[in-house]
Design a binder for these strands. Structure first.
Lengths: 164, 164
DNA sequence: TATTGTTATACTCTATAACTATA
DNA sequence: TATAGTTATAGAGTATAACAATA
């Protein structure tokens, strides 16, 4: 769409001030961005993060923290390096992320018998309890996301990306 | 599934998250993340940005800068507020982003006759020239992205997101 | 009063590097 | 030497708030 590449001032503005203050259509050409998947992926990702953060604000859990809690819970005893590579979180950042979770009593770092360098990660009972609450809220977010995209488009997207 | 907690599990040892081409299976359970589209969208977005940044590093243009140059070029005379809402860039951040581009002689902020508050944005000749180069490099990135996803999946994704 | 653009602050995220302790 | 984890720094990105000029 919008193949228009008129260099001279294309329908910029809305000459009726009162009428379209909160206009919904951009009226502004995206031009080459239309052929860049990254642009659309980023827009979607921003929406998703904002909704996720808002939904889990009451328990103060960020998307990255949520993903860490989920993976630790499902893979008890894994190391920070394993968690980091699984989630694509750099180890320096992961250390601080875990400091935060440990400081809140949600996560434990247990010394490994086999390898003195490793910390084996586990959720505390409180961590498991908070995670359960987080999953409930995250599901609510996911439902909202599906509604925003439409069920058909949602299934198409998650199907295409999940086993990629 | 996989509730395994084998303490001696060895990491798969992926070099860089970005270089995770078609690696083997995770070996670590993603559990509830599998039902969250946001998790997969974020992973894809991270890969895309890393490749885009690497590809355009030689001309020092970030994804956000690229999107701004494209939209200014295609909509000459638009205001910062219009550009910001179009791209989802907050106006405070956009001001600094434009400082940078203007400092490099790529963008001009012209006072509006009609409204003394507005700056009408235009590319300079140098800006247009750099944008042409940027588009070439960005196309190269896009080709790589399509290859990574597979043409079919790529078309499916961009089709689903473009007119959403 | 509201809007446009600017400056400032704070926090998160990303990318490095340097360091320790273990292997 | 290499790996696991920590600390530190710098740069972007994000979210606010306050402000001046203009509407």
């Amino acid at each position: 769409m919008t193949g228009s590449k008129n260099p001279s001032r294309r329908a910029v503005a809305l000459r009726h001030p009162a009428a379209t203050q909160r206009s919904r259509r951009p009226a502004i050409a995206l031009d080459a961005l239309n052929s860049h998947l990254g642009y659309f992926v980023r827009r979607l990702q921003v929406w998703i993060f904002q909704d996720f953060i808002r939904t889990l604000r009451r328990i103060d859990i960020s998307p990255a923290q949520f993903s860490a809690l989920v993976v630790i819970n499902a893979n008890g005893g894994l190391s920070q390096a394993e968690l980091g590579t699984t989630l694509g979180i750099e180890r320096a950042r992961l250390a601080r992320l875990l400091d935060r979770l440990q400081g809140r009593g949600l996560v434990e770092r247990l010394p490994s018998d086999a390898d003195g360098r490793r910390h084996e990660l586990e959720l505390t009972p409180r961590g498991r309890s908070l995670l359960a609450r987080a999953k409930t809220l995250a599901s609510r977010h996911e439902t909202r996301l599906m509604q925003k995209l439409g069920a058909e488009r949602y299934e198409l997207l998650i199907g295409a990306l999940r086993n990629w």
